[in-house]
Every structure is written in C-alpha cells, then in structure tokens.
Nucleic acid binder design. Structure first.
Lengths: 347, 347
DNA sequence: GCTCGCACTTGGATCGATCAAGGGGGCACG
DNA sequence: CGTGCCCCCTTGATCGATCCAAGTGCGAGC
C-alpha cells in the first residue's frame, strides 16, 4: 500500500470521478445520474437504488465548481470575521460563528470567512459579491453609522443582519436580534426577587444604542416595581477599570446592594472593587453581567450573566437566508429573540 | 413594501460582466483580458492599460466558479470549527481563526468553515475533498488518537496541522506548533528571577502529551536552577474547581510561593483558593497561566500567562500550504514557534 | 389499434474562465 | 526581396454539471 515518502509534500491528490463516470458504470445517462442526485423522485425506485449504489462505490460527489458555475450559486455564506477585541470579555462571536456553521450545514451551506478592513469596510463584500463567490452575507456589526448594511441593500445583495438597524425609523434590511432590554429586565427582576431594592446600573456611553437598550430594561423594571433609580446609574467605557471605578463611586454615593452591568467586562470591574473592599460577591453584593462569556463561566465566583440565544439567532438567520435565496416571501423585517439568565454564585 | 433607494450608477447589474464583455468593450480577445488579469507582463503596456481601464469601468471581477472549474482549484482552505468548550478559558481558537483568515487573504485564499462531528470525524473532510470544494485543510486537533491527520495523509489531501503528531508514528504529516515546554520555561524562569524557589505545577492528566510537554518545561527549568520539585506537582482535570483543590492541597502540604499552570482555567482555580485564604495574588503568591485567554486579560488581578504566537502560527501554516499547493518542496516536516509571556499583576 | 404517460435516453448548448495551439505583423538578417 | 523569428494577440477546445428539447420503448387504458 501507499508508503509515504520521506520528503514532505510529495503527495498528489487524485482526480475524483465525474458524473459521466457514474453514468457509464451504472448503465444510465448523465441526466439520470444528475436526477438521482437532485430530483430522486423522477426515477424508478430500482434505478435510483442502482445509481445510488454506483455513486457510493465510486465515492462520487458532484464537483462544486461545475455545479456552481451552472446553477449560479455557491452554497456559501460570507461572514466578515472582525478582529477580536483584546481586553474585553466579549467572546460571543465565537459561539455565534459556531452556531452559524452548524445551522448552515443543515441547510446545505458553508460559511466563508473574510477579513474586515476598517479603512474599506465594504471592500471584502464587494469582491466576493462581484466574483459571485458567495450567495449571501451575514452581517454582524450593524452599529450606528456602519455602512455595510446600507451598501448591501443598495447592491441588492441578499443578506441578513445580526442586529437591528438602530438609526432608521424604517427598516431597510432584514435582521435578527436579541432583546437586550428583556435581558436586563430578567437580570433586574431576578435581583428584585432576591430582595434587592437598590440595584445599580453600569452601562456604556450614551452613543451606543445597544447600551441604551439594555439600560432601558433595567430602568423600566425598576420603575415597574416602584423602585427608585436616582443616583444608581453610570455610563462608562467598556473596560474593566472603568467598571471598577464606577462601582466604587456608586457604592460610596448611593449604597446599592446589587449591580446590573451592560457587559461581563464591566461586571469584572465591579468584582474587582468588591474584592478590594473585602465584599463578597453574591453574599454582600450581587452582580450580574451580560453575554455569559467564558469569563463569567470560569471566574471562581461564578458570574450570573445574561445569555444570548446565539444558537437560535443562527438558526433564524439561516432560515431567513434560505427564504431570501429561494425567492420566497419573508414575513417580517425583523425577529427579536429572548435571552436567558445564567444564574451563578454572584447573585 | 420596501422602498430601497437606488443610485443607478453604482448598482450591481443583474448579471455581473464577464470576461467576454470586457474583451468586446476593450476591443481585444477574451484571452488577452484573462492575461491582463493573470499574466500582465504578457501584454504590451498600452494594451494592458486599456484593458485595465475597461475592467475598472465595468467593475469586472472574474467569476469564481468558472475559474475554479477550469483551474481545478477553489482558493479555499477548509477548517473544521469544533464546538466551543463551555466552562474553560480556552478561547485560543478565536484568535487563531482570525489570524488564519488574515494570513489566507494575503495569500489569495479564503477560509471555509465546516462543522465537526465526533461520531464521524472525517465526514466533513471527505465531502469537501471529494467535491473539490477546498484546496487544502488546516487541522487543529491533532491530539493522540485523532484519525483526521492520518486519514488526510492517506487520501493525499494537502493539509497542515496546527499541532505535532504526538504519537510519532507513520504516516507523518506537516505541522506547525508552539513550544509548550518553552512557554512554561519562560514562566518558571520569570518566577525564579523574581526570587521564587518553591514553584508548584498544576497540569493535566498524564495522558495529555501537550500537558506533559508543558510540565517538562517547568520541571527542567526547576532542575536547571538547582531547585527541588518534590511534592510540588499535581495533575488534574482541566476545570476550575480541580485547580482550586490542587492549589489548596499543594499550599497545605508543600508551601509553594508560586504556581505555574497548564491553562488559564486551572490558574483561575488557584486564584479562587487564594481568594478564599485571603492571599493576594502577585503579592503573597504568584500565579502564571497558559494561553493568555480573555479571562487572563479581564480578570481584575491581571493574570500573567503564556501567550501563543497564533498570528505567526497562522502565517507559517499558510506559507507552508502555499508551498504544498504549488508543488514546491517543503523543507521540514515541522516548525516549532516560541511563545511569549504576558506579564501582569499576578506575578 | 390507438393514444397517453412514465421512465428514461440522446445530443447539444450553456455557465465563464483558462489552456493549448495557432496566426499575423513587424523587424532583423542574409 | 524573401526568410525566420519573436512578440502580441486570437481561436477553438475544455473543465463538469445542469438545462433543454426531442425522442424511444413499453405498458395501461379506452
């Protein structure tokens, strides 16, 4: 049998069998084999069985390039894989991408990654689109002022966004998103149920619509429960030490017994302040984060955190993409999914 | 209904222009346009300029499927995107994938993700290979007993592994890896330089070759510096509470002043034990983790951690893949890269 | 006997780029 | 003035699957 030579890389791939090979071997025409693969119900059962067996024997699999050329599809979904932000806990992307890969596979698609370039944000999209390398895109960063979604709409390229179009009164593109306000509502209600009344908010700066949405969930829940929020909110950068500072100030000035944070990163900051002040998370002060990042899971005092249903997001995105690509009507512009709360020791 | 504003000039035509369109418009043949794209030096400068201008005017980009069919390549690199392991700090995959996407792009490749299936570990590879959907693979999980690398070798599929073939038997394959022992050596020496002499090791069970490699770095460095290691090592599961328990036992029995861990997850366990015992990381006891995960970066007391040069790994992998795919000789079977130490407050 | 429809076959064209030959014009050289 | 040659470009074939239209054999139904 094949003994591998001692020099690396001296192996050559073999040419796989073609449709014609299968046809000849099975004693049928090319067309019939093609039908066996794509329209099995057109064949008589016994013929189908015979062809299928031959396909199995030869290990035939339709050549992707040829099929793509003819059908003008690639069965690929493009996803811009943006640089990871070091120093923050936001590892949601990883989980989302994985879910997307799984969901796509089930729909007969694969995920193609391409790099992001902040100087030319649509360059990668443009290339792939014009060379018909992908059938559709999934857009993940739809924050305010991001030109990608608008650009893709204009190009009439099929895509679904993970994230709402915050800046527009009228939805210009199809989206799937997680209800951030519902997440912080869950978190806040959870704390209220545990007897907390002075629950503080540490969130992002005002120019982040996502941050404001999450904040609104906290705010409304507090008010719905007749609780005051004066002096209990703070808006900072999404870095650990900002969270720590904000927590320190809030503790000094407003004596909260619990914190709801817009991110696990900020929650980590709170944990730090608690640690410095010899306060035990979960016993003395409750803390809830957002994103259920690995930090929340691995931190010795498990951090209670809002968990986005990324698996469902992926499934919903792929489902919608499929409708788009088969030119079926899409019912709604957007789908909003409910997050859950991963409860741990910190609350 | 959706009102999508359209700027007619910049809108993507229903069908993108083809080579023939460009050729006709520029008054040359298809082949000449093809050469303008792929072998510019075959054209006279003025012709080249003219063709290039026409390409720009029409916004032409070669159709991927057609090119793939003819050249029998796809310019795609397959990567199995395995499920994220919840509850551990190992987010190295994310950073690696991103680096790989960037490095691939520069070499004219894209990364195609496909899901992993533990029941049929080579199924995904097989499909993509037989349908000639990808040119090559990057294999990431080459732990002992993993059949993928061996299977791919046998199929003569071009691939490069991130990870050494630990079982050291034929058939061998081409790999790029990070020197784990060098990483723990860095960590250990760093601690010795800070005056520590009783440095403990918390690592994985013996059946993990990677774990044993990392352990060896600690062991050798200790011995090289004339330090004893008796009673200072422990091997456990890679989960937080195991790390915590191991730390507690070691502290009680051997009074170490520093810990080197095989992972950030275990280091988190150590941190937990320190916290319970009111010991300050970095001041009372030093801790070093492995992987420089987001946990290490975000943890309030920054965790010193061995950082794998994943960017370099990706570049090296792509470089080698390119040699393989162009049938150029590959010099060596494997390349071992040196990690660095991200020093933070915990040491 | 005739029609109808099913289950294929047949031959060709097609998708769009690239490969492998095949010109043709200009220039140098005899 | 003819020949050879190189450079630059053109032409037809090709990659492998799918689309298309027309045709064949056969059994059932009227």
């Amino acid at each position: 049998m094949a003994r591998i030579e001692s020099r690396p890389g001296s192996q050559l791939p073999v040419t796989p069998p073609t449709l014609a090979d299968v046809a000849e071997r099975a004693g049928v025409s090319r067309q019939t084999v093609s039908n066996a693969v794509n329209n099995p119900d057109l064949l008589r059962p016994d013929t189908l069985e015979r062809v299928r067996q031959t396909i199995a024997e030869l290990g035939y699999s339709p050549n992707r390039a040829a099929r793509n050329l003819r059908t003008r599809t690639s069965q690929l979904i493009g996803l811009r894989f943006a640089p990871v932000q070091e120093g923050t806990a936001n590892a949601a992307m990883d989980r989302f991408v994985h879910s997307l890969v799984e969901a796509s596979e089930e729909a007969g698609y694969h995920v193609l990654l391409f790099p992001g370039d902040d100087e030319d944000p649509v360059g990668g999209y443009d290339n792939l689109l014009r060379s018909t390398a992908v059938d559709a895109f999934v857009v993940t960063d739809t924050y305010l002022g991001n030109p990608q979604a608008a650009w893709l709409s204009q190009q009439r390229a099929p895509f679904v966004a993970f994230g709402r179009p915050w800046d527009d009164e009228e939805p210009r593109h199809i989206w799937v998103d997680v209800d951030g306000a519902a997440g912080t509502r869950l978190a806040t209600q959870h704390l209220i149920d545990r007897g907390h009344t002075r629950i503080a908010w540490i969130g992002w700066r005002k120019d982040s619509p996502i941050g404001e949405d999450r904040r609104a969930g906290w705010l409304r829940t507090m008010h719905d429960n007749g609780l005051s929020t004066t002096g209990l909110a703070s808006r900072v950068e999404d870095v650990v030490h900002s969270g720590a500072e904000a927590a320190a100030v809030l503790l000094d000035e407003s004596r909260p017994t619990a914190f709801v944070c817009a991110s696990d990163t900020l929650a980590m900051g709170v944990m730090h302040t608690l640690w410095i002040r010899q306060l035990a998370p979960g016993r003395d002060i409750a803390v809830v984060g957002f994103d259920d990042s690995q930090v929340a899971q691995v931190y010795p005092v498990g951090l209670t955190s809002v968990r986005q249903p990324l698996e469902d997001v992926a499934v919903e995105i792929v489902r919608t993409l499929r409708l788009l690509l088969t030119h079926q009507p899409v019912e709604t512009w957007g789908v909003l999914l409910e997050p859950t709360l991963a409860i741990r020791e910190s609350s």
